[in-house]
């Protein structure tokens, strides 16, 4: 157990015992050694479940708005206590974004900040392990800075960090949590710059090739909504693509019901799939902080991060704006400045 892990556990224990938080959102061991899974710690005696290691991939911030969406609250949930949450540097940008949009207020959370050296993409690691027939059962992992040392069946294997970490970690500019109440670990300095090479490669393709590329990507979509539901800024209770979610009350007239436009049909065809993804992208433009969760959650391996990176690049280039940096910042699409470029609406 690392110092960070032990210190987090101790702090959570204290907060729960003092009644300062109703629960703590962190990570616990998952279904196999390559995964951790989000955990919700309600009792002080359960704090030893909490882990902190390079498999702590999930962005937990979305659970804060999820908590508010619950339609029927049980008595114990009505208490106005805060929620404790462990937030990595990248994920803290989505937390800042939600604070700036007033979807959560600062006094509703106790933020556990942490320094992060990068997290592992289990798919990449598993592929390398399978290639060398390395068994997973008793796998442990350590880092020496540039490499991860995997121990399995008493043998050691070294994997370069950049071969198995999440793509987003390779140009991470935010290794430390941006805002926090408690910080764990030594702050990490970085002079990394955002890398848009993959986006530029797609941009450089002729129109037909780009169309072909994205058609192939979106044709794979099964519309399970994992990308949307995992997204911390996709918090709407009623989503534009869920036409059936129209809330009908006894006062809703038949005309209102009839006029409820189904923006998106349920048939899973290329046109509808494109509409789904592009609508989502437009809705998160200037709000997405590239935590990469949508691409990670997609069972069909759709390259959604290429789109979110493109959004980030455009927003930065056109408006010199970066989402999730400043709690006081106004959302990009709600402000207008004289110097804003207008080419795109001509």
């Amino acid at each position: 157990m690392s110092d960070i892990e032990g210190n987090i556990q101790a702090k959570v224990k204290k907060l729960l015992e003092d009644g300062m938080i109703k629960y703590f959102i962190g990570y616990e061991s998952g279904s196999d050694p390559l995964h951790t899974t989000p955990c919700f710690i309600k009792k002080a005696e359960d704090v030893d479940k909490i882990v902190w290691n390079p498999f702590c991939v999930n962005n937990l911030v979305g659970y804060l708005t999820d908590d508010k969406k619950r339609e029927i609250k049980k008595d114990e949930e009505k208490k106005t206590k805060s929620i404790g949450i462990l937030v990595k540097g990248c994920d803290s940008k989505s937390l800042v974004q939600l604070l700036s949009e007033h979807k959560i207020e600062k006094n509703e959370v106790v933020i556990f900040g942490v320094s992060c050296n990068g997290v592992i993409n289990p798919k990449k690691l598993e592929k390398l392990l399978n290639g060398k027939s390395i068994p997973l059962d008793s796998l442990t992992l350590q880092s020496d800075g540039k490499n991860y040392i995997v121990t399995s069946d008493k043998k050691k294997y070294s994997f370069p960090k950049d071969k198995i970490e999440m793509d987003k970690c390779r140009d991470c500019t935010q290794p430390n949590t941006l805002i926090y109440d408690e910080f764990f670990g030594e702050k990490i300095k970085t002079d990394a710059k955002k890398d848009y090479t993959a986006v530029e490669e797609i941009e450089a393709l002729p129109l037909e090739k780009r169309w072909e590329f994205w058609s192939d990507q979106f044709a794979k979509c099964i519309r399970c909504s994992a990308c949307r539901n995992v997204c911390p800024v996709c918090y709407c209770k009623e989503c534009a693509v869920d036409s059936a979610d129209l809330v009908i009350t006894p006062q809703t007239t038949s005309v209102e019901k009839a006029n409820k436009m189904p923006w998106l049909e349920k048939n899973v065809e290329l046109a509808e799939n494109i509409f789904f993804h592009l609508t989502r992208m437009m809705h998160i433009a200037g709000r997405c902080i590239n935590c990469g969760e949508c691409e990670r959650a997609c069972p069909m391996n759709i390259r959604l991060s290429l789109l979110t990176k493109k959004l980030e690049k455009e927003v930065k280039g056109m408006f010199d704006y970066e989402a999730g940096i400043d709690v006081e910042a106004k959302p990009l699409l709600s402000i207008f400045e004289e110097g804003d470029p207008g080419e795109f609406i001509k």
Binding site: T37, C39, R223, C224, A226, N229, N267, P299
Partner: peptide, 29 residues
């Protein structure tokens, strides 16, 4: 159920990738 489902995102990947799930909806387009 309250505790085990807290981390669920409510997406449909488990059901859409399930070989036995068969629920369907019918719509006129």
């Amino acid at each position: 159920w309250d505790n085990m489902s807290m981390k669920c995102l409510g997406c449909g990947s488990c059901t859409y990738l399930c070989p036995t799930c068969y629920c369907f909806d019918i719509n006129d387009i």
